[in-house]
Design a protein around this nucleic acid. Sequence first.
DNA 1: CTGTGTGCAAAACGTTTGCATGCCT
DNA 2: AGGCATGCAAACGTTTTGCACACAG
Lengths: 138, 138
Amino acid sequence: METIEKLTKTLRSHGMKITPQRLMIFKVLENNTSHPSAEDVYKRVKKVYPAVSFTTIYKTLETLRKLGEIREFAIDDDRKHYDPNTEIHHHAICSACKKILDVFEDFSPHVKLPDFIEKDYTVSGFQISFFVTCKECN
Amino acid sequence: METIEKLTKTLRSHGMKITPQRLMIFKVLENNTSHPSAEDVYKRVKKVYPAVSFTTIYKTLETLRKLGEIREFAIDDDRKHYDPNTEIHHHAICSACKKILDVFEDFSPHVKLPDFIEKDYTVSGFQISFFVTCKECN
DNA sequence: CTGTGTGCAAAACGTTTGCATGCCT
DNA sequence: AGGCATGCAAACGTTTTGCACACAG
């Protein structure tokens, strides 16, 4: 995700409007490495704007996703999570507490599909999920 | 997943019963590399046993999962998928048609968490998702 | 002023459970 | 006969939509 200023310009250039709710959503997402669900974002925005609705959060997240500003991903089975960091990176998830850690190491030199598969498929990228147990849960 | 015969013995040894519905579920899962959802399994079983209920499929899949005979995983955002192949392997998913291809290459010599992370985490494994477009969708 | 965004309520969807009945062992 | 499995229906939690009103541009 870009800075709030850039994001604002991007939305405006698409004929979209900037509202206080949206600005607050941007603020919650900025530099957020907690991989929040829509509900998580909702709770944080609600602290500042108690009248905000889940629908607004949901629709704005969907807007940001369509613009490519955030990424939606399925890592635990219960709900969808969002990641404002759209750069390629990997995740380590604690099977006990479900916390997700970002892993920025570049594995691309060593990870590629076997040739006989790559022949028939266009590969746009890959993502590694490490299954771990964190210090606190150990 | 083991052969149907072995699976039958395993269930029996746990005091569980073998029913025609279950046998059909086993049959659908055996050598199945399509990564079906519960609904997918339901549809296939229903062709042979039109009276079968989704609940039965659901509960049996859950039983098999607890026994470690199949694996549940989240790769697309919409529903859970099951994989009767519980050996370590990776997946390539077509972003257009959502079909999932198994990738059996062993990347473990090259893929590990950075030392400073590994210090605090116990790693039980990793899984790579390749994002691809398949020949048909290209 | 126009059209997008908001918020409520309800629908849709997949997953899960309670319970009475059925059937495997 | 006993106990696990089945199937119905309903509960559940999350995601998604329709619509009237609000407000940013």
